[in-house]
């Protein structure tokens, strides 16, 4: 029988594997997912993974070793389309929060001392699009089940994937949460891409920005607002950089240029 199902691979670079785990957590849809496509590689759930041509590769995790750079380039060569799957792949994740390369080198030294790296050499954590072209981004820590299933279904039906252009505040308001930013908390909701269902503010915890910056985020205004509310520049930058990796640096450079 000729197999005309889409050939798909799930790959994990450096991260917690939470995004791949989320796929396995789609319990009601799992059989349908596995029936609908031809999964060539998914190390978390199957053996006998193959490294052939792919229609779609979903890559989770950030790039932190030279070996991963090669692995990633090989995936790109084999796949017609590549998805940055989860915040680490999209932005570099928490492991990319030390924006300054000198800071990274210092920390590497603190953690590993004078260890000689024999297997592969570590590099400063970067999102996957620092090395390859990416066709679609699905941020999330982990990605949202709803967004993943919607993306997956649309690709399967030959439709373009849906974009999620709104900040967390939209869903947060739908959930009728009292605005934590207005109450004086360091909440990153207005700067952060939506998809989590405003899960932290639902529990009275300010948004940590784990989905990364939303398109068109007004970082400058929020920055000054938080300053006015009494937070230190260092505190604000640290929280903003936590999940946003290298992509927040542009914003910070913009801020630094502005008169104080």
């Amino acid at each position: 029988m000729k197999n005309d199902k889409l050939k798909i691979g799930f790959y994990e670079l450096t991260g917690c594997a939470g995004d791949c785990l989320l796929v396995t957590d789609c319990e009601m849809e799992l059989i349908d997912i596995f029936n609908a496509v031809d999964i060539q590689s998914f190390a978390m759930v199957m053996s006998n993974n193959t490294d052939g041509e792919l229609d779609l590769a979903l890559v989770e995790g950030s790039v932190t070793t030279e070996k991963e750079i090669e692995e990633l380039k090989d995936i790109r060569k084999r796949a017609k389309a590549v998805v940055a799957f989860g915040t680490c792949a999209v932005l570099g994740g928490v492991q990319a929060r030390f924006i300054d390369p000198k800071e990274w080198e210092k920390n590497l030294k603190i953690v590993y001392g004078n260890t000689e790296f024999t297997h592969t050499k570590p590099v400063q954590s970067k999102p996957i699009d620092a090395f390859i072209d990416v066709d679609f981004y699905l941020p999330g820590c982990p990605v949202s089940k709803e967004q993943f299933l919607n993306f997956f279904t649309r690709i399967l039906k030959g439709n373009p994937p849906e974009h999620y252009p709104n900040p967390v505040c939209v869903t947060c308001k739908y959930n009728e949460n009292d605005c934590l930013l207005k109450k004086g908390e360091l909440c990153l909701g207005p700067l952060t891409a939506d998809g989590c269902g405003s899960i932290c503010p639902n529990h009275n915890i300010p948004c940590n920005g784990c989905w990364g910056p939303v398109e068109g985020a007004n970082v400058t205004s929020e920055f000054y607002l938080l300053k006015e509310k009494g937070f230190s520049v260092d505190e604000i930058k640290k929280k903003m950089a936590n999940f946003s990796g290298t992509k927040i640096t542009d914003y910070f450079q913009q801020l630094d240029k502005e008169p104080k």
Binding site: N166, P167, C169, V170, K173, Y174, C179, G189, P190, L191, G216, A217, N218, T220, S221, E222, L225
Partner: peptide
């Protein structure tokens, strides 16, 4: 426009 966080809350409420 400079200050607006574009959160959409004014419309949603």
């Amino acid at each position: 426009g400079q200050a607006c966080l574009a959160c959409g809350s004014c419309s949603n409420v």
